[in-house]
Design a protein around this nucleic acid. Structure first.
Length: 310
DNA sequence: CGTGTTTGACCAGCGC
DNA sequence: GCGCTGGTCAAACACG
């Protein structure tokens, strides 16, 4: 799969460049912070949504996926590449459509973890995971695969690998990835019974680009005792942004001044037909924001979205 | 002491 | 069947 992933990677890289061009982002990033153009990377990701989730999301996804039809393929292909083998099992069955409902919460789908891990836990007797093991009973591997969690992939121009999103993450692994000199880090939400994971890797073609892939949906509120720069990100935002006043232009400006920009893509496990219609139908954009993608993002970044709601 | 990171080992899936 | 690769585990370690 080496050649294929290489192509995907190249494709993605070009796509990200296209995004920057679309957003009229300069190649250099003079900053209003007077901070060499850098602020915590969390700003570029979280604040974009924090300031106005709808606008930022529009900006991110509509521009990324909407303007450039190939981009959606690229992003989705990228995040799907390791699970291509699932396609035959899943395609046409639309098992991973996500809505704001809790029907797809981790509690309901603990089998998000790979079967191999379950097998190992079964052998080792991994504490606190009995429910997973018991859930495994009576299921085939294929059935487990179908329960892949939806994933969201962000490309963020940042010098910081691990983007603060308000949740607490525990790093549980790091692997060198093929065709990249940068390792991929694996994080898991530290909240009990929440199996949301994320992978963080740096683009080997553009080291300034960090690719963050979230998998699953949090089944708990945002931790109250936040550490790190989530609050700081909010402060950054408050300094010069008024919630709700965020426009596409401001997002562009935000990405510009923060020295960071982000692209996002949603991975619904082969259910991508919606993008075409979104692109073709201007009115579909609203539906799309009210639909699964927007809601998914809300669930993944509740702290960001809830702050905007009166 | 609790929490998070590092890192070598292990395992399963896939391609050849 | 074998080797490669991605994903995960868990002991050891670091840190506040």
């Amino acid at each position: 799969m080496s050649n294929e992933s290489k192509d995907l990677y190249s494709y993605q890289y070009l796509s990200s460049l296209s995004l920057y061009e679309l957003m009229n982002l300069p190649t250099s990033t003079p900053s209003s912070y007077g901070n060499n153009g850098f602020v915590p990377s969390s700003y570029s990701l979280a604040d974009c949504f924090q300031s106005s989730p709808g606008a930022a999301y529009d900006s991110l996804l509509h521009k990324t996926l909407g303007v450039s039809p190939s981009s959606s393929e690229v992003f989705n292909s990228l995040v799907d590449q390791e699970s291509k083998h699932d396609t035959n099992d899943v395609i046409g069955e639309t098992p991973t459509r996500v809505s704001a409902s809790s029907s797809s919460s981790e509690a309901d789908h603990p089998g998000e973890d790979s079967g191999k891990s379950q097998r190992k836990r079964e052998l080792v007797g991994y504490g606190g995971e009995e429910n997973r093991i018991s859930k495994k009973v009576g299921k085939t591997k294929k059935e487990e695969k179908k329960q892949r969690e939806p994933r969201v992939s962000f490309m963020t121009k940042s010098e910081v690998d691990h983007l603060e999103d308000g949740y607490r993450w525990r790093k549980y692994g790091q692997k060198a990835v093929k065709n990249s000199i940068y390792p991929r880090s694996y994080y898991r939400c530290t909240t009990q019974r929440c199996n949301v994971k994320k992978r963080v890797e740096r683009s080997f073609q553009d080291p300034t680009v960090v690719i963050t892939t979230y998998e699953g949906q949090h089944n708990h509120p945002l931790p109250t005792n936040l550490r790190g720069s989530s609050a700081a990100a909010a402060m950054y935002s408050a300094d010069f942004m008024t919630p709700g006043s965020f426009t596409h232009d401001m997002f562009r400006s935000s990405a510009y001044t923060s020295g960071g920009s982000a692209a996002a893509a949603l991975d619904y496990g082969y259910e991508q037909s919606g993008y075409g219609s979104v692109n073709a139908n201007p009115n579909a954009h609203q539906e799309y924001r009210q639909g699964g993608e927007y809601e998914l993002l809300k669930e993944i970044f509740p702290s960001i979205f809830f702050k905007q709601e009166p």
